[in-house]
């Protein structure tokens, strides 16, 4: 997994609540058996005016000029700013893969749906919860600024605006440690395989039907 330590980047405003994972990556793109290649269809239904299909070359489609991803000032954006309940709905990790494949490294919102939030950490995407007022400030400043670039420092747990305002955010220590070091979760768990085996022996005695 890619490490996350510090990141400065252009922001991408996604100004609506309850952005669901169906919207982040529509179902027709879930048929892939790979982890990569979802970026070109990130927010596909909003991004294009015509229907998307994995068999169609996006270059031949009509982009929606009103959608942020098609506006040149957001080229290269890597920090998405969202509203409440970001990532709700389906558990599809493809939503996270689409964001990271596009180049998004962090999402800032007042709240996230639980499964999306978990999935993000597995892929080096940092979900940051700030207060509604702080997120509102980012949206307001972004609208008023031509190139709105902010800085994230995971070790210090801060988001810093161009004007120098600094917002701190919370993160579980274990998640922070894994992200800072880009550690593989499975490898870490397998360090405890003796504990798993001990647990299984105890459960076999208590609840043998679970192992029958």
């Amino acid at each position: 997994m890619e490490k996350f330590t510090q990141h400065s980047g252009l922001t991408l405003p996604m100004d609506r609540p309850n952005v669901d994972t169906d919207a982040i990556i529509p179902k027709q793109y879930l048929k892939s058996v790979k982890r990569a290649g979802f970026g070109p269809n990130l927010f596909d239904d909003w991004r294009y005016l015509d229907p998307g299909d994995p068999a169609i070359d996006n270059a031949s489609r009509r982009p929606n000029p009103d959608f942020v991803l098609n506006q040149p000032q957001y080229d290269g954006a890597s920090i998405l700013i969202g509203r409440e309940n970001f990532g709700c709905g389906s558990s599809r990790e493809h939503a996270v893969w689409a964001l990271t494949d596009y180049g998004i490294r962090a999402v800032i919102a007042p709240s996230f749906a639980d499964i999306f939030f978990n999935n993000s950490f597995k892929n080096g995407l940092l979900p940051i919860v700030l207060s509604e007022d702080q997120v509102e400030q980012l949206f307001v400043e972004e609208t008023a600024t031509e190139v709105y670039q902010i800085a994230i420092d995971l070790a210090a747990q801060t988001v810093t605006t161009p004007a120098g305002a600094s917002f701190s955010f919370e993160i579980d220590e274990f998640r922070k440690y894994r992200l800072l070091n880009g550690l593989d979760d499975i490898g870490l768990t397998l360090q405890h395989q003796d504990s798993v085996k001990t647990y299984e022996e105890r459960r076999k005695a208590e609840a043998p039907w679970l192992f029958a």
């Binding site: 982890r35 558990s91 996270v96 499964i115 978990n118 597995k122 892929n123 979760d185 499975i186």
Partner: peptide, 9 residues
């Protein structure tokens, strides 16, 4: 429900 990385885990 879990994501695919957790399925693998």
């Amino acid at each position: 429900g879990i994501g695919t990385s957790e399925v693998e885990h």
